[in-house]
């Protein structure tokens, strides 16, 4: 293949990565933005979404599209419920102390991973895509499903943006983010908002995982990469900024796609991680905003 088409292919692959990454990172960013905590178990909610999608599509027989549609609805709901319970039982009790929260969510990470390993097993399992259409471009054929991931992610991002900026729920969330005490004084049930935000963050990760699982396979250790990449996106994009998250996801996803096509993926990860660590070290103000210590 010539260089041009090769680059186009790499860009398309990168866009798929970016689409999934934007949703996952948005979940992490939302939780950090509103609750001021870092959820280390975020990648495990992603993994759980993928594993549940496999379970649901396996149970449902018939047209793969039916099972997949069901998974797209049920899997995020289950993951959201689990996250909500974890928030109420653990995070609320440690009063969202930043360091204790990190330790507690690491605990959560191990528990979820172990449960997945015990009940799902160590194998990587595929999920059948809801449809198999191949779109023929002049130089190569490309999976229609992958293109639909990009579209679905864009729609979901728009919906999230609408909820955050144009509805009462979004207003309540922004008020809580801005000043917790004042929000409480104005009768906003801060505790319930926190529970809901934590669940919503996990659901976004789960949706992203359901979308990607037909092309990536479900595995109990698949959560680490999305976690690290989400950190990277959130740090570069700036917290709480929906637009920043999307732009950074595009940047990271596409460049990751392109670098992975031309270089070794391990080297690509090394470079990306190192660059982001350096950004955090030398430009922390652009990353955690001014309110974080």
């Amino acid at each position: 293949m010539a260089f041009g088409p090769h680059l186009l292919l790499a860009t398309l692959e990168g866009l798929v990565t970016a689409a999934v990454l934007a949703l996952t990172a948005l979940g992490l960013s939302l939780v950090f933005g509103v609750m001021r905590i870092v959820n280390v178990a975020h990648g495990e909610f992603f993994m759980l979404g993928a594993v549940l999608a496999w379970a649901i599509t396996t149970v449902v027989s018939g047209n793969p599209a039916i099972g997949f549609a069901l998974a797209l609805v049920l899997s995020p709901l289950i993951v959201g419920a689990i996250a909500w319970v974890a928030e109420r039982l653990v995070l609320r009790r440690i009063e969202y102390n930043p360091e204790a929260t990190i330790v507690a969510t690491i605990g959560l990470l191990y528990i979820i991973q172990q449960l997945a390993l015990t009940f799902y097993g160590p194998e990587a399992r595929p999920v059948t895509p809801p449809f198999n259409i191949r779109i023929q471009l002049p130089w190569f054929g490309y999976s229609g499903y992958k293109l639909s991931i990009i579209a679905a992610s864009a729609l979901l991002l728009l919906a999230t943006w609408f909820v955050l900026t144009r509805t009462r729920i979004g207003l309540v969330m922004r008020a809580t983010q801005y000043d917790r005490e004042t929000a409480q004084a104005f009768g906003i049930p801060v505790g319930r908002v926190y529970g809901a935000v934590f669940a919503l963050g996990a659901m976004l990760a789960a949706i992203a995982a359901v979308l990607i699982v037909p092309i990536q396979q479900a595995h109990y250790l698949m959560g680490l990469d999305p976690l690290l990449l989400s950190f990277i996106v959130v740090i570069i994009g700036g917290l709480g900024s929906l637009r920043g998250t999307v732009v950074a996801a595009l940047l990271i996803g596409v460049s990751d796609g392109i670098i992975s096509v031309f270089f070794s993926p391990t080297l690509a990860k090394i470079i990306a991680t190192l660059v982001v660590a350096m950004v955090l070290v030398f430009r922390p103000q652009g990353l955690f905003g001014t309110a974080a210590k």
Binding site: V38, P98, E99, I102, F231, I235, A277, L280, V281, F282, P284, L287, F288, A292, K293
Partner: peptide, 10 residues
């Protein structure tokens, strides 16, 4: 050069 949560992540 960083503190708190940023130190952990770095």
């Amino acid at each position: 050069r960083t503190t708190g949560v940023a130190f952990m992540i770095v």
